[in-house]
Simulated scan of single mutants.
Amino acid sequence: MGFMKKNDLNSSYWENRYKENDTGWDIGHISLPLKVYFDQLQDKSVKILVPGSGNSHEIEYLWKLGFKHIYAADIAKTPLTNLKTRLKDFPENQLLHTDFFKISDTFDVIIEQTFFCALHPSFRKAYVEQMTKLLKSKGKLVGLLFNFPLSETGPPFGGNKAEYSNLFRKDFNIKVLEPSINSIKQRLGNELFFIFEKKT
C-alpha cells in the first residue's frame, strides 16, 4: 500500500476494506494477550469501549463472559452489522457508528487493538487527548501497540516503546509497556502489551 494522507483514511476507505474483505488486521478471534487480560477482570459492571472495533471479537468475548456495559465504536457500518448478526441480543445503542473523535461518553476501560496504528500519525496527539476525555479518573487504556519503525506507508503505521512512552506519559501512569509474550505467530516480536492509567 502506498503513502496515505490523513484525509484518505475516512469512513468510505474503511467501509470499502470491509466490503472487499481486505481486513488483514482481523485475525478472526480475540487475541490471546487481551483474552488473558479480560479473564482476570473481576468487576463485570465496568463500562468498556473498544474504538475502531472492527468485527469486534473482543466485544463478543466480553459479552459472553457477562460484561454488559461494553460499547463497540467504528467509523464503518459493516463490522458493527457483523457483530449484531453474531450477537442478536447485543443492544443497538451500544453499537456506535461514529468517528472516535466525536464520542463524548466516559468509560472505565478502553481497549486498544489495531486502532491507534490505523490512524494517520498526525492524529496521535489528538488520540491521547480524546482518551483522556473519554476515560474516567484512574480509568485504564489497555491493549496492544505495534512495535516496528514508524512509516509513511500504511495503515498500519508503526512506532516504538520510547515514542509511545513520550506520547502518553504526561496524562497517563505507564503501568505496563512491554513486548507481548503471547502474540499470534505473525506478530510475535512486533507487539507491545500496555496498561496506561489516567492520572486524574
Rank of each mutant, 00 (worst) to 15 (best):
T81A: 14
L177G: 01
Y13T: 06
L95E: 02
G159W: 00
V128S: 00
W25H: 01
F38A: 10
G154D: 01
V36D: 11
E92I: 10
F90Q: 01
F123S: 05
K77R: 15
T85G: 02
K35L: 13
H120N: 12
R86I: 09
A76Q: 01
I110R: 02
L87E: 14
V36G: 02
L87H: 12
S31L: 13
Q130D: 09
F194Y: 02
K35V: 03
E20T: 14
D26H: 01
L144E: 07
K199T: 06
L145V: 03
Y164P: 05
H29L: 12
G154Y: 03
K161L: 15
F67M: 07
S56V: 02
V50W: 00
Q42M: 11
G189I: 09
E129H: 09
F157I: 05
F194H: 06
H69A: 11
A72G: 03
F146A: 00
L150N: 04
A76V: 08
D89W: 09
D26Y: 02
D89K: 03
H57T: 05
K84I: 10
L87S: 10
L119I: 08
E152H: 09
I181M: 11
K185G: 00
W14V: 06
K161E: 14
I110L: 13
A126E: 15
G139N: 07
F157T: 06
